[in-house]
Amino acid sequence: MVRNKRVGAKASVLAAAAALLLSACGGAGVDAEASDAPAGDCGSYAIAMHAWVGYTASAQVVTEIAKANGCEISQVTLAEAGVTYDAMESGSVDLVIEDWGGGRWQEWADRGALVEVGENGNIGLIGMYVPQWMADEYPDITDSANLNKYADLFVTDESKGKGAWYEGPPGYTTIGEKMVSANGLNFTVISTGSEQALIDVFTKADADKTAAIGYFYEPQNFLAKVPLARIKFPANDWTDPEQASGLTDYPESPLIKLATPKVMDANDAFTKIVKNFSWTNADQNEVAADIESGTDPAVAAQKWIDAHKDIVDGWLK
């Protein structure tokens, strides 16, 4: 069976391959039908996708606008910072629309792998948060000086007899360990690994009225659903997380756009969009809320674009 079947199979595979080649040479008829996108003079680009929904909102809006202007866009999901910068260096990603890295990309920029394009309009604020009910019940808890007083409330099986301090995911800018040791806090830092783990922690703490202290940030639509209170540490004195003493709070930081030189040199529609894209935390939250409530990101982005024609047109100039 083997032999003769193979002969038959071989012949038919050859025939199929030939047919394939023929119809391929003939060009796909589908292209004629499907070319509803306006033929713009725009290249093909890959946008880095990151895990948090705010990022998705920004990236999706850029994607939709670029597509509408004839660019070919693909999305590549990657962890933040290092991996993504590497991906930009290798050319597999062209744009980070929202970077929180505190300038850690400098090394890559020095090598010419990527370019800082400027701020994207969003202001990022990282901090340590407790559920609102705790702030209501223990009003002085939001002052970092009083944290030790309440440390016992936060003890879990995971926290070795001290309070459990839920730290942000590995890719995020985090200085939790430094904060704990510099301020002599009686807490154990627990690495949550993912933003969703934090969301779980807070959701649960809010629903069950249990204690939790953890890393969070704005803009984040989640804050609208589950009220959190920010712990105040002494005023901030740093920008580069590596230099942080840990004694002070996270700074407010304008978020940055990063692109490859390829984007900057192309001077096409995508270059314009990337250079000009800028929107507010409220804008982002609006799209993010839609996405979170189950709307397809592309649809949510399109809805915002349609409602803000003037802003979008401004970006395209």
């Binding site: 933040e80 910072a81 290092g82 991996v83 850690r104 590995p170 890719g171 690495s191 690994g193």
Partner: peptide, 10 residues
């Protein structure tokens, strides 16, 4: 966790 950390934090 350190592996993940290493891939994100230069």
């Amino acid at each position: 966790y350190l592996v993940l950390l290493g891939s994100s934090k230069p």
